[in-house]
């Protein structure tokens, strides 16, 4: 077959949705699509519960915005909402930069076996469930049996019950999240770092740049797109993903700073059977996430080099 014929055939195939080349790819994506449809689209009409009085015996009446009025007048809702944003702020201030810094530091290590060891050890906590991690930290920080307090007392200090201090909790929780996720999250940055052209470093050295200047002028610009895309992508789910760790860590002492929307939804919906209120808060949260997603999309067009949107 000559090249002209191949080109014609390729173009003809390109116009078809299904052809021999891509049918297998479509088949591969089918199971996740079905799952996505079952678990994300079929339940979607359930958001109607936000506008109903719907209890354990089912539909009672259409309530309009009554549920929204109720939750917006509930102090617990605003407390959970505020706490959620505190965790978001801590997340962008500390958790997002942590794997970047970690990747940069790992990148500077020249001893290969040491680098691999550090990388492996730092990645391991990611595979430990939050229940176990919470247990480890509760034991470590216990005022009566915890090693941290043994050390404090050994040096003459007073034991502190860390997990009873609402003001300390966001910091402790952020530390735990970094400890758990920094190694794993740094993998993508390490991959991006591997793609930085070595000639740029050589040129920087010739220009007299030291390590820090090389990092600032070569490395960081080299992975800028990756950083931006990951940050932008994270906007759409900033209010999610905290249920499990918060659920296992919170207690009555720190309720005021640990309760978040997800745990409040669980408490209202699953524990107390107020499904309509839980759905109302869930819808409110989803609306915020959707606005953030569009914002992220708009932002991605402006900050990425090729001006592509993420949607």
């Amino acid at each position: 077959m000559d090249s002209a014929a191949t080109t014609v055939s390729y173009k003809r195939n390109e116009k078809k949705i299904f052809n021999k080349t891509n049918v297998m790819l479509y088949l591969m994506i089918l199971p996740p699509l079905i799952l996505y449809y079952i678990f994300h689209y079929i339940p979607m009409p359930g958001i109607m519960l936000a506008f109903q009085r719907y209890t354990i015996s089912g539909f009672k009446y259409w309530s309009g915005f009554e549920n929204f009025t109720y939750i917006f007048n509930t102090p617990f809702f605003w407390r959970a909402f505020r706490n959620n944003w505190v965790f978001v702020a801590f997340s962008y201030a500390f958790i997002t930069p942590a794997p970047i810094l970690f990747a940069l530091m790992l990148n500077e290590i020249r001893v290969r076996w040491y680098k691999k060891t550090v990388q492996t050890i730092s990645t391991l906590p990611n595979f430990v469930t939050w229940v176990v991690i919470a247990g480890i930290f509760m034991q470590l920080l216990s005022p009566t049996r915890g090693y941290v307090n043994y050390i404090i007392e050994f040096f003459g200090g007073q034991s502190i019950y860390f997990l009873s201090k609402p003001a300390l909790f966001p910091w402790l929780f952020t530390f735990m999240r970094i400890w758990k996720g920094v190694g794993y999250s740094s993998i993508i940055y390490l991959a991006a770092l591997a793609g930085v052209d070595p000639q740029l470093y050589e040129a920087a050295v010739i220009d007299g740049a030291g390590r820090l200047r090389q990092t600032w002028h070569v490395t960081l610009p080299g992975i800028r797109n990756t950083i931006v895309v990951l940050i932008v992508l994270s906007f759409s789910h900033v209010l999610s993903g905290l249920f499990e760790p918060i659920f296992v860590l919170k207690n009555d002492f720190i309720e005021s700073s640990a309760e978040i929307l997800d745990t409040y939804i669980f408490n209202l919906g699953i524990t107390r059977g107020k499904y309509y209120l839980a759905t109302t808060i869930g819808l409110f949260k989803s609306t915020i996430s959707m606005v953030l997603l569009f914002f992220a999309n708009w932002l991605s067009k402006r900050v990425t080099e090729d001006g592509r949107s993420i949607l």
């Binding site: 009873s164 002492f253 005021s256």
Partner: peptide
């Protein structure tokens, strides 16, 4: 009922612990 319990328990815990 659940809200009363949460509000009361939180207040007691905060007062007892000195938070």
């Amino acid at each position: 009922g659940g809200d009363i319990s949460t509000a009361g328990t939180t207040a007691i815990a905060a007062a007892v612990s000195g938070n």
